[in-house]
Design a protein around this nucleic acid. Structure first.
Lengths: 231, 231
DNA sequence: ACCTGAACACCGTTCAAGT
DNA sequence: ACCTGAACACCGTTCAAGT
């Protein structure tokens, strides 16, 4: 096959921080965050590993940069003044953005310090509560209560892919009613669609997320109405 | 120095799964989970790395085993029948146990499947709600809303040690009121003890944990009283 | 049955060059 | 200014031996 100019051995798009971050994100999207290494990323860019160090400070700075891009992509609708509704929408916007990148939860939680975009988001969310009339004190504790849910993470209890080992999976499922009767009850109730007793696989992530979010926001509203203080 | 019998080169306590797990936990306690490798653990046991593989299946099985030991140490007081109080105490008991091992949060969250002790704890906690009269439906969603807080993890937003780089720390602190006014307000309010504006460092972990836990439990109580269903 | 030694296929990162 | 190549100090794990 005749090679066009672009496929000359030394031919490739020039490196830049933006390009490194972009390709790293795409690589993590398709191959998973565990497969992303300085070496695999370099290969993806047709470059020697050390070439990356002119554009990112190292692996940690690479991860910081990836989070910075993702969090920067969160769109924020203008506030309506109804703090509970505004906060709810802001958090669901974060959720829809971060959900596009499966690795973002693990990476965000691994950051040792906040990046600028994270601080911006946090400050804006905090502002919705304070401007909505909640005391700084209550706002502070509500932010803690939201915890990582402020980023739209549903609390997946386990990193888990369902067990690929079908034999042990079946054994565990059959043992469940005897060993863990209460979990079995929930499993039965949650298995609306699939075959019987599919553990927690039948759960609707979006529903669980909004259920928990609303409990926290409703709790905040109640405490606000009571003029609650921590003192 | 005269060597006693016990310090003969080949002399050492015999390996066993229990001893491997115990030493691994102690090592992670003092050196941090990142420093725990099959190789460093082997060295701690005065043994060649491959010797470990007769007692644990590999690194993942080692981590599973460590979690199994920690979760197994959670003491559960007998239930009094007051579900809200019982669940609160069970979760605070989990918290006090898991807090003794700083690494337990990261390791537990990294497990791809539940270990038997985790299932036991989960089933017992679930049972408190169901036996307390909550519907299976509500119990299911409340367990999701509790999320990893059921293990007593306070939502530390960042793995972070405070920035060791004092210069950049000061710069960030001074820039805070201008760039992130709402966060600055919270930082001011939370800096009860230390010098002015110490970011979120002044927060009382135990207080924040119980604040969030009570919001979820109170929310559950309210929904229960309303005969709430997800359908 | 239990432990060893050498090797394999990976990491992130340094250093000293190349162009 | 930007990229390369070789090397260093690590990983987890395999395989084939040793005792």
């Amino acid at each position: 096959m005749a090679a066009p100019l672009e496929s000359t051995p030394a031919r490739r798009a020039p490196l830049s921080r933006a390009r490194v971050l972009h390709v790293a994100m795409a690589y993590a999207d398709t191959h998973g965050i565990d497969a992303l290494s300085m070496r695999s990323l370099a290969q993806e860019l047709s470059v020697v590993p050390m070439a990356l160090y002119k554009h990112v400070g190292g692996k940690e700075d690479l991860l910081d940069g990836m989070i910075e891009v993702v969090v920067g992509e969160i769109v924020h609708e203008p506030a309506t003044g109804a703090w509970k509704r505004d906060a709810r929408e802001r958090i669901l916007a974060a959720r829809s953005t971060l959900q596009r990148h499966q690795w973002s939860r693990a990476v965000l939680e691994s950051r040792p310090a906040m990046t600028p975009a994270m601080l911006d988001y946090l400050d804006a969310l905090t502002g919705l509560f304070i401007d909505g009339g909640l005391s700084v004190d209550l706002t502070h504790h509500v932010m803690h209560a939201l915890g990582n849910r402020m980023w739209g993470f549903s609390q997946e209890l386990f990193a888990a892919t369902p067990p690929s080992d079908t034999a042990s999976f079946n054994a565990q499922r059959d043992a469940l009613p005897r060993q863990h009767p209460h979990l079995a009850q929930i499993a039965r109730a949650a298995a609306h669609a699939g075959p019987d007793g599919v553990l927690v696989l039948g759960c609707d992530d979006a529903f669980e997320f909004e259920f928990a979010l609303d409990i926290v926001l409703d709790g905040a509203e109640k405490l606000h109405a009571l003029n609650w203080t921590s003192g």
